[in-house]
Amino acid sequence: MQSKMKESDPILQVENLFASTDNLPILKGVSLTVYPGEIHAIMGRNGCGKSTLSKIIAGHPSYNITNGDLKFLGQNINSLEPEERAQSGIFLGFQYPIEIPGVSNLEFLRVSTNARRKFLNQEELDTFDFEELVKEKLELVKMDQAFLSRSVNQGFSGGEKKRNEILQMALLEPKIAILDETDSGLDIDALRIVASGIKKISNSRTGIILITHYQRLLDEIEPNFVHVMADGQIIKTGGSDLALELEKKGYEWTDNFVKET
């Protein structure tokens, strides 16, 4: 799925998306458009559908799109496999990065990077060239090389796992990154490292969706838009002020909003 789009065209369009899992509706008409260079924040209570939205964009096989469209670089991706979406430039940073015992982090990163490079018609990297590249990217998230020889995320602390996610993002150079609660479980220093890594990777050609509960990540990375989700819908969109408002008011008003509508 190669793009012939203009730089001003949207990267991601979520159009009136309804989705369910085990016949249980989770998303009930979500619409969202992300243009190059934009940072969007999605906030909301636990269980409002934020993480589900991120998994559906990434193509999780447990969820079914029952209505609506997902478009990436102008093309419908509803039926694309997760790996096809990832290769074409969609990145999901996991809230709880998965441990894969026995699979070396270095090999995992190399195979992933080469899958993306192959899609971009770039030369695949052998182990030596890849090590050079990964060393450079490790600097972004201040990770030690020792992490490369360990199994993927196994025995990593919460902060190390999140930094490993940002390292993957840096290597894959996605068009859009959806970062699901990347700030959870991080102390202040780790949060700054992760935020600084995200800022260095993002540019005027990429889009970012930050899913978060807290203002503290948005203090480090200022979003262009803040969306509030409740009961599987985006019920309000605003600027970065909206996040500050939520910090003060909490989410109770979102419950009332859902009841009223």
Partner: peptide, 28 residues
Amino acid sequence: EEELFYMRTRGITLAEASKLQLSSYFQE
């Protein structure tokens, strides 16, 4: 399945992801 999905979100095909998982299972 969650390990497989994680690997697939990094561009690794289902077949490759299964092989990686199996290789770790065999390696021990």
